[in-house]
Design a protein around this nucleic acid. Structure first.
Lengths: 275, 275
DNA sequence: AGGACCATTTTGGTCCTACCAAATTGGTCG
DNA sequence: CGACCAATTTGGTAGGACCAAAATGGTCCT
């Protein structure tokens, strides 16, 4: 579905991220890639441009070389999460950890220097999260909305950008794991109440403590959820909901490369054989 | 010096970030931009691609629209810092705050789950920072090296990517402000000693306290430095060190647009008149 | 031999032209 | 007034030609 250059960029990014190339290695030339993937060189160039801006390759006249991973852009996280069938628990945990820290920072800034109206706005989100009788879906959405509100009202642009960028990237993964999460609502609500009180009294120390506890709770929630997802070991995105096979004229699932055009290197055996 | 598309992307990014366009506004068409800036449409396309990947514009068939700022990539920070002559103190403060939080997180993870050898490596950096008799330049470099070591040994990739990305962007600004910073070395060393002790005993609570204090110290250091820079109100990058005028055949300073080609919109008066 | 130097080849960078598909636009008809 | 449809605008793709910088491999001097 997506354009050629986009697919190519994805393929190359995955190959680099998977460690097929060592940092410093020369990438095949644009012209060679063009013939190998049977696309126009322009498409290759756009893909290389993406790699360059992603920070996974350093492309210069004379040749392109792969860059060390830790110098890449934050946007590679999405690729890393998507490359493995079951999300990497460790990476996901790191993301959560960072988000929660930034969230804590934003909330602390809010209670220290924020306007009263902003604090009230956040409190409204927190209480709304508490009072209503929500199903887990709505509860999750409300949680996210609360986080968003905290980020925005904090006024810290850097914080917002990072959080938004991270969220955008792990949202699909989260969606895939969601069926397996079982949040301890009781404890969560206890924390939410504490947060509300801390916000009302502008008690920074307690705010921080609450977010530390949030982090711990999330970790305890996430780990078994991922384990459950691993046990099932199903393809996250579509294969869960797909129940009606549809007409026989259908092409391949779409998440993978269309077999009609050979954007993948020639005759690379599919690693996950149909069983 | 830089390529046309790069200049164009910078110009457009700055115009969008400066609020000249509202979020949701339509950007001029590629063909129109091509004639306005007297460049090939291909160059315009590359610039638009950059804007798109930067998250400041949403470009689709039918037209490109500017995106809300808070949905942009983290990489716009560099533009925002560079667009104003004197760095924005508030934004710089936010960056520092975030970095210090992430640093604290990394250090805490290190003392909680890190290997002994890694902790020793960080301690070495801290002590090296303490013992030697360094000038402020070397001291700053050693501080950065310490932070880098903490980030790397922590093993949190997300943390590393954010920190590296932020640092890469505010490094030039930091360089510009550096002449004006006067670090309270005595207090800093006191904190460093505390950090060393906390690392040795794997005392997570103290580690966090130390980084909170670091944050506070940096804030107290940064604010007057920026104020001093504002007072001087000099162009950060080159004009400070340039003392020998060079041959008369020289072109314009290079940071600005070459007068021979009109990449800037026609006859736009320079906003900062020479005084 | 070993190292410095230089011409050739390779490689990415730019430009141009033409054409395609999707979105927008503006008119037209019910 | 609203739904629908065609013409236009807009971004997307393709292919080719050429340029400049880097890498390469040979040559010459020491």
């Amino acid at each position: 579905m997506s354009a050629k250059h986009s697919q190519l960029a994805g393929t190359l990014t995955d190959e680099i991220l998977s460690g097929r190339y060592q940092a410093g290695d020369r990438l095949p030339s644009e012209r060679e890639l063009a013939v190998r993937f049977n696309v126009n060189r322009g498409a290759v160039r756009e893909a290389m441009s993406r790699l360059s801006q992603l920070g996974v390759a350093d492309v210069q006249p004379g040749g392109a070389r792969v860059a060390p991973i830790n110098e890449a852009s934050l946007d590679i996280i999405g690729h890393m999460l998507a490359s493995t069938q079951v999300p990497d628990a460790q990476l996901l945990g790191q993301i959560f950890q960072v988000v929660e820290r930034l969230l804590s920072m934003a909330a602390e800034a809010l209670v220290e220097r924020g306007r009263a109206t902003d604090i009230e706005a956040v409190r409204a989100r927190v209480l709304q999260l508490l009072d209503s009788r929500l199903d887990s879906e709505a509860h999750a959405a409300a949680r996210i909305e609360m986080m968003r509100t905290i980020m925005i009202t904090s006024g810290n642009l850097v914080c917002q950008l990072i959080a938004h960028g991270l969220f955008k990237q792990f949202a699909p993964t989260l969606e895939a794991v969601k069926p397996y999460v079982q949040l301890d609502v009781e404890q969560f609500n206890r924390l939410a109440r504490r947060l509300d009180g801390a916000l009302a009294t502008r008690d920074r120390r307690t705010v921080r403590e609450v977010f530390d506890d949030f982090s711990e709770l999330h970790n305890r929630t996430l780990t078994p959820a991922i384990e459950a997802a691993v046990r099932q070991s199903v393809r996250p995105s579509e294969s869960i909901t797909r129940q009606n096979p549809g007409p026989s004229s259908r092409r391949s699932p779409g998440a993978n490369v269309d077999p009609s055009d050979n954007l993948a290197p020639r005759s690379r055996d599919t690693e996950v054989a149909a069983s």
